[in-house]
Design a protein around this nucleic acid. Structure first.
Lengths: 205, 205
DNA sequence: CCGCCATTTGGACGAATGTCAAGATTTTCT
DNA sequence: AGAAAATCTTGACATTCGTCCAAATGGCGG
């Protein structure tokens, strides 16, 4: 709050906020590369065209920067899943589309998801991260829940579990798949697809 | 391998190995307190009655120490769950016992489980941890699977999902419950109990 | 009691960390 | 163009980090 960040707001269209986003995006890449424990402000700066001192011009301290990163990740996250699974005609198609979507997300950006799980774990130790992490978790849970309720609609039934339980299931499957995928297990993605598609019928009734 | 640890083996009954265990247990407490990212060798030493230099007498470097900690955690882990759920007469009783067991484990040692998830996430970045972490994950999966098959036996049915899928479900539920429990949500433990007990019937058939 | 060896201490090292401020540079406005 | 403000670089600071090592301590067999 006492940093330069809180005071300055001269240029009308927020070039200031743009630069913050740019720096945060670079920080997210660094976090995905190295993990929270090994990411310093200087290594973050090396992922940008700027020097390390600039980070303290735009962020009060490291916690504020990482917190901003979490929020930024959330923005990209909800945007990605917002236009989700809408064009499935049958229940089985929807389950398959959901499974393919999750497997594709894992296959295309495993490091980003690794970073998400890292940040979520950090929130267990750093209360400053908790609120934003919980919000992301909520939006992911809602994303899953939209799929489950859509499946139930197509199947002419009602969900038989809570949104939290459904999210726990798919999140657990996704995390295990990530672990195995990063350990170079070839079947990880296929197993994830199967593991996601299969339980749908059991979640409604 | 070039450390003192590999050479010395004088005293017959391994006092050396005992001290390694003692130091590793202290390190586990430190990791549970602070998390991997904030745990230094000096803070680990502060959790013991020894000075920081001693750690390098028993462990070549930090990675070897943490790796040893992971293995040590595994030993305590499998020992705890080995004598598990054997005295349930009905399927419903077994599901309830399993739910109570998981909720009790979370309620009694939330920081230890926080540490486990931290170490598991670290293994995503540090390949040196991967093998041991995967072994722990396997033994946890087996522990869950024993409960599921036992439930199936009492219910006179066969499991309808793989061991990996069942573990993903319960692990996801546990992790969500841990997040909420550490965020002081009062209903976390009860929700975990319900969330564990409820899906059992859907896992067999 | 002495000497040997395992154990432990405490300090030192170079490197890396988060933070900060003074100055250089660029942009903006009149 | 020139002044003022915003932006960026550079170097420094006090800590802390992992690692190493010489010396002190301890116990045990001779």
């Amino acid at each position: 709050m006492t940093s330069a960040a809180a005071v300055r707001r001269r240029t009308p269209a927020d070039k200031f906020e743009d630069r913050r986003r740019e720096l945060a995006d670079a920080a997210l890449l660094a976090l995905a590369d190295l993990g929270y424990a090994r990411t310093s402000l200087r290594t973050i700066a090396e992922h940008t065209k700027f020097s390390h001192g600039l980070l303290h011009y735009y962020f009060a301290d490291k916690v504020e920067l990482i917190t901003y990163c979490v929020r930024r990740y959330k923005a990209a996250c909800v945007q990605r899943y917002e236009g989700g699974v809408g064009e499935a005609a049958t229940a089985a198609e929807l389950a398959a589309a959901c499974a393919d979507g999750l497997a594709a997300a894992l296959g295309e950006a495993p490091l980003m998801h690794r970073m998400w799980y890292d940040l979520r774990t950090q929130s267990l130790f750093e209360p400053a991260f908790r609120e934003d992490v919980a919000e992301i978790d909520d939006s992911l849970r809602d994303m899953i829940w939209r799929n489950v309720t859509a499946y139930a609609g197509l199947a002419g039934a009602e969900p038989t579990c809570s949104a939290a339980d459904a999210y726990a299931l798919f999140d657990g499957l996704f995390q295990q798949a990530l672990l195995r995928h990063l350990a170079d297990e070839e079947t990880a993605l296929d197993d994830l697809r199967r593991g996601v598609r299969e339980p749908f019928p059991r979640l409604v009734g």
